[in-house]
């Protein structure tokens, strides 16, 4: 474990889903995580992690809590954000097979199909290649990235398929790095945030 990075406050959207596991990963790389359930809590953080869970549940709670416009504003101001699974769906510019009333932040130019890998009995774990090494990816009723925009960089693939993508300060994964105890991707995200603050 690294020394405590006291100047860094990274939020974890805690409306529903795997927020607790993400908080543990952030803590393991020396960052004190902040659970975000309200616009006031969002104001206190420099970056946001959006966990897996049910994207339709989160969409509803984003509206009722007033967090939807608050996060949209921060995203357009360049807040570093990392979305995994449902979090990736919420960040995508286009959702296929979602609910018709489901909103997203359009913060990364990708089209994702909800539950495209099938039901829970089809959920799987597998190895993923990235420039920063091999990762073990856990895919739970996972969405599929079906289109990647021109400004989006593919940084992780499962076979030929994109599963980890980045556009500017926004990072999105269709798998769950928080379920393996390997916090290298959290470290990668935290480094992005720290580097940005130095500029």
């Amino acid at each position: 474990m690294r020394g405590l990075r006291v100047n860094l406050r990274i939020g974890v959207l805690a409306l529903q889903g795997a927020f607790a596991a993400h908080c543990e990963c952030l803590a393991s790389v020396g960052v004190e995580p902040v659970e975000v359930r309200s616009p006031a809590q969002l104001e206190s953080v420099q970056a946001l992690l959006m966990p897996g869970g049910e994207s339709s549940t989160m969409s509803q709670l984003l509206e009722s809590s007033g967090l939807f416009p608050a996060i949209a504003n921060r995203l357009s101001a360049g807040m570093p954000t990392f979305g995994t699974c449902a979090g990736m769906i919420l960040l995508a510019s286009e959702i296929l097979d979602g609910r018709s009333d489901q909103h997203s932040f359009s913060a990364i130019d990708i089209s994702v199909r909800r539950n495209a890998f099938g039901r829970q009995v089809d959920s799987f774990e597998s190895s993923i290649s990235t420039p920063i090494g091999e990762f073990h990816g856990v895919f739970i009723r996972a969405p599929r990235i079906e289109r990647v925009g021109a400004n989006v960089e593919v940084i992780g693939t499962l076979g030929e398929e994109p599963v980890l993508v980045r556009q500017g300060n926004v990072l999105a994964a269709s798998f769950h790095p928080e379920l393996t105890g390997d916090a290298r991707l959290h470290e990668y995200f935290v480094t992005t945030v720290s580097n940005m603050r130095k500029v």
Partner: peptide
């Protein structure tokens, strides 16, 4: 993992 995804719900 799926149980993890249902937390808070």
């Amino acid at each position: 993992g799926l149980a993890e995804m249902l937390k808070g719900g």
